[in-house]
Design a protein around this nucleic acid. Sequence first.
DNA 1: GCCAACGTTGGC
DNA 2: GCCAACGTTGGC
Length: 140
Amino acid sequence: MAFWLMKSEPDVFSWDDLVAKGATGEPWDGVRNYQARNNMRAMKLGERAFFYHSRGSAPAVVGISEVIAEAHPDPTTEDPRWECVDVRAQAPFPRAVTLAEIKAEPRLAEMVLVRNSRLSVQPVREEEWRLVCEMGGARP
DNA sequence: GCCAACGTTGGC
DNA sequence: GCCAACGTTGGC
């Protein structure tokens, strides 16, 4: 069981937008980066991902989403190279965990979020997952 | 709004 | 296959 982190600009598609989609969820389309696509290809049904708000006033992990459809062609392009998974909101973080808090935690220094801030879909280690959940008061 | 870091493109 | 130029992302 792997863990993931997916970024979204809250002005474009926020956690609340995903919550509003309910059980139907949302295709995570528009990704045009090979590493991010490869990560989506590796996602399995039922695996979970942090929902991260980038470019907001305070970039932060704000919720947990769940994969409800494995990789399939991205409906927003004819280009067969690009694929997406579908996700739905599973649970909000009682307290958002900001990037500043993550950077201040030495045990999270190896997170992809810290080391390669530009990758929009990234793996999270199990111990990192548990720690971030704990920091946000979320059930891991 | 600025700018550093990174990924992609395209000429050679 | 190299690398400069360019575009995009995202923190601040």
